[in-house]
């Protein structure tokens, strides 16, 4: 019964995989708890998981953490959708029309390598400390990555699909709508999921630098009072939100593209 665990690339039942996943979490929690309660590290630096769990509840009951979460989620999705709406059509164009690609690629490659945190001071000068600068940070962090990913997905659509379209009498617009987009969509949705994850990284940077609300702001202001359990609880909250969003994307992906199942 244990043998499949030791065979290279042997498939496991779904149930076993879930159990192993939960086991992984418990293993981490156990090691954490044992280290924290051994007294080697002072609790100001490493509180026990139970202390963090209590802090987690306090965040909601005493500090209205829920509205911080709503603010942060709102920022992430607004900036993310703003990126998607512009990056998807441009990415499609970059791969279908070589001229568009030739114009945009070198510039995007340049911008892409600018570290987003380095842009924060500039964006604050331009947009102040209001919502606009935070959206701008998130947008800068995702747009230029996403456009190249979408362009790559489009490029991977087999030429034969497009040529089949031509010889079946489809116009360029019809080939785009009926062939290129459906063919590239599964990979695109996957890349949207990954990009949304990056949004969260930049959100915390944006909220730490200049904000008076949001998860990042909450974590940063608690740091001043060395409320380590609350800080850790805040970080864990981000992890949970990320995990839930990711699972929602995966679920939607599996439903939308069930034809990929063998």
């Amino acid at each position: 019964m244990l043998k499949p665990l030791f065979v290279f690339r042997h498939a496991l039942p779904r149930k076993t995989e879930i159990i192993l996943g939960i086991f992984g979490f418990f293993l981490f929690l156990t090691i954490w708890h044992m280290t924290a309660s051994s007294g080697v590290i002072r609790p100001e630096f490493l509180p026990t998981p139970f202390a963090v769990a209590k802090a987690f509840i306090r965040l909601f009951t005493e500090r209205d953490f829920a509205s911080d979460i709503i603010v942060s989620v709102g920022r992430v999705w607004f900036a993310f959708l703003l990126s998607v709406v512009i990056a998807v059509p441009l990415g499609l164009m970059m791969s279908t029309y070589r001229a568009v690609g030739a114009i945009l690629e070198p510039f995007i490659d340049f911008v892409r390598y600018l570290p987003v945190p380095a842009l924060v001071p500039l964006l604050v000068i331009w947009f102040g400390v209001g919502e606009t600068s935070k959206i701008a940070v998130l947008w800068m962090g995702t747009f230029f990555q996403l456009i190249l990913l979408i362009a790559d997905d489009t490029k991977r659509v087999p030429t034969e699909y497009i040529e089949s379209g031509h010889t079946l009498g489809a116009s360029n617009g019809q080939i785009m709508r009926h062939i290129i987009i459906p063919a590239a969509l599964p990979n695109m949705i996957d890349n949207l999921r990954i990009t949304l994850g990056w949004c969260w990284t930049y959100l915390i940077i944006a909220e730490i630098v200049a904000a008076n609300s949001g998860i990042g702001h909450m974590i940063w202001s608690l740091r001043r009072f060395v409320k380590t359990p609350e800080v850790m609880a805040g970080i864990i909250a981000i992890g949970i939100i990320g995990l839930l969003t990711d699972q929602a994307f995966r679920f939607a992906h599996a439903r939308l593209f069930s034809y990929q199942r063998r």
Binding site: P158, E160, Y161, S164, T167, P182, A183
Partner: peptide
């Protein structure tokens, strides 16, 4: 009309 060597049927 063209039939290619590689499979050009649409997976979706």
């Amino acid at each position: 009309g063209m039939v290619f060597q590689s499979y050009s049927s649409f997976p979706w």
